[in-house]
Amino acid sequence: MSLDEVASITSLTLRVGLVATAVILPPCLALGYVLARRSFPGKSAVQAVVALPMVLPPVAVGLGLLLLLGRRGPLGWLWSLSGVEVVFTWWAAAIAAAVVGFPLLTRACEQSFAEIDPRFEEVGRSLGLGRMRTFFRVTLPLARRGVFYGMLLAFTRALGEFGATTLVAGIIPGRTETLALGIYSRVQLGDDSGALVLCAASFAIAFAAMLVAEGWLRRSRTAVE
């Protein structure tokens, strides 16, 4: 197995993880904030729906996505209109990763917002900041550690995503083959050494991510408390 091959699989995996995390961040922040601060009829139902991808078998999630995004699915017309095919591309892998990461990040945001005394926001508003600016200058900075931790969870979950991804993206070498998929296909083909190399790459990414996260969390802790 060539070094180029490992590098390409690794970079595809990172790209999928980063794009998935970045795409879900704004809606997770917004939804997490609403769930933490507001009470409205049907809130429990919303929370249950949000949690679904976390508790369903990933393969079931993948099948759902396939039906939704496929050419004959409800969203298929959108893709054919723009001439873009999503299914069986790395975008599909990113979407699968985003969907399974969504509940993790939303929950982390909800919990960290709920821990912040609304009084801080009220003082911010009394000092002349609108709701949006208060959110970005008061709420988000105060919740940043929990939000960051949620992003880390979503990102690492994306790195390991397998079940949903195989269904919507397939295992296409050079196009949709992420580290998790690559390890699986190599074991299937009897290429144990190749699988171990990809395992090592996975380990390196996960380890680096945890190192960066721990360092950042420690620094932000000393800066705040």
């Binding site: 009084r119 009220e122 003082v123 000092l127 002349g128 609108g130 705040v224 408390e225």
Partner: peptide, 20 residues
Amino acid sequence: IPTERRGLGWVPQDPTLFPH
């Protein structure tokens, strides 16, 4: 008038200084 445009200087009972 919304809170942010009332121009009031509020000193809450617990000082509620921004810890960050």
